[in-house]
Design a protein around this nucleic acid. Structure first.
Lengths: 229, 229
DNA sequence: CGCGCGCTTGACTAACTTCAAAGATGGTGG
DNA sequence: CCACCATCTTTGAAGTTAGTCAAGCGCGCG
């Protein structure tokens, strides 16, 4: 058993991710009855690529990274999951990516079998799952544009704005991930990410407390950079 | 009214895309009753980015390109839709991408409102939509790895294998799209795509009849290139 | 048969990566 | 509480991949 993954006893209220559109009410409440809350330490593994996909997860606190290794060691981080985010809907019979906690994290774990059964009984649950899947699909397609056609600095600007939106407080955000994680997410190297951030700082567009605390000083300029889409 | 888009009279049988996994039966049959068959000429527009998303579509014959323009004219092609593929599930209230026919094409058009109503009545329809959305999500995430971490030649190899799988006949495939479309899909320029194909040809890995007819001569070598994932 | 558009190829350039080293940061134990 | 060490980040210089610009080819359509 993975020592980084411990099952806690209590239940928990789960909030809908702010970014999921068009659905005001959280019909997933019924799901909570079939969910188990778990705690993971930093670098704890939720699942690995190719594991049989028997569970869905939802992040309560902390942050999870979804990644994949190519044969020669190149890594791609396809998503960062933050509080409220649902994990695993893209999986077929096996997971296509690994998922690891980037900081100490709590998640709810749902048996996939039970969720599917519930969805067939209660159309509104099915509908909610569909909404989540469509939102993930849509977000992934936006990221395709970023990786396919944006420059390094545009990618970094888009990334910062996205994170501020999701876990920022006004114009301030604490990055839960390393420069390497960001690079692997944006299709860049750690060094290019670092240089990009330094450049944004030297332009007065952002400020940094420590290297993980970002302050947006000129949101308009950042949006112009992210632009394009 | 768009002259490239004409509504035909007949109904049509719709096959499930071969690539959608884990669902043997096509519960969408009930949907056909609420669908309208339409024909589009080459370059005909199904919808544009920002149009209100009032319809879903499914390709019957031909090929559709889903693309987005950045402010300065850079273009990204996020998906190619081929016979059997369902279009529009990622959209929220507006479409996020434009969709245009790459060749003469027929599609079925479904009113989104009617589909949603059906899905709530009939859980298996909802389940089928969920499967399609998850498949799109999963495919998009695979493409993120390609754009984020693969080299030009690896991208081209992956692309060819994907197309052969979807519309190829054994080891032969007719590309319905231009080099520019392929480049905009793979995050490359037209020239790089052309050079990549020429190089694969010079290595004896593929052969070309005319520039749109590709023959896989050494599938193993192509898979090794696409590899990595 | 000729014309036009898309594809190919070549030479040069730019953006990002790689390799390397120095600078900060934060966690731990004395 | 402070000092040390490991780790992560920043910065610099050189290298590589893919992009840009430009010219010529060839297929397919009229």
């Amino acid at each position: 058993m993975n020592p980084n993954l411990r099952i806690a006893t209590s239940s928990a209220s789960i909030r809908v991710p702010a970014a999921v559109p068009s659905e005001r009410v959280d019909h997933l409440a019924a799901l909570d009855r079939v969910g188990t809350v778990m705690s993971l330490r930093r670098d704890g593994v939720l699942f690995r690529e190719c594991d049989p996909a028997e569970h869905y997860f939802k992040v309560l606190t902390g942050a999870v990274r979804s990644s994949k290794l190519l044969a020669d060691g190149r890594r791609h981080v396809s998503e960062f999951y933050l509080p409220g985010d649902f994990i695993g809907l893209d999986a077929d019979t096996s997971y296509l990516f690994s998922a690891e906690a980037m900081t100490d994290t709590t998640v709810v774990r749902y048996a996939r079998r039970k969720v599917e059964a519930l969805a067939l009984q209660e159309p509104r649950i099915g509908r909610q799952l569909l909404t989540i899947a469509c939102h993930g699909y849509s977000t992934a397609r936006q990221q395709l544009v970023l990786l396919g056609r944006k420059t390094a600095e545009e990618r970094i600007a888009s990334f910062l704005l996205d994170l501020v939106e999701r876990i920022g407080d006004d114009d301030r955000v604490l990055l839960p991930m390393s420069r390497t994680d960001i690079g692997d997410h944006l299709g860049l190297t750690m060094e290019t990410v670092s240089r990009g951030l330094s450049h944004l700082k030297s332009e007065g567009i952002i400020a940094m407390g420590n290297s993980h605390e970002i302050l947006i000083r000129d949101r308009e300029a950042l949006e112009d950079l992210a632009e394009a889409a």
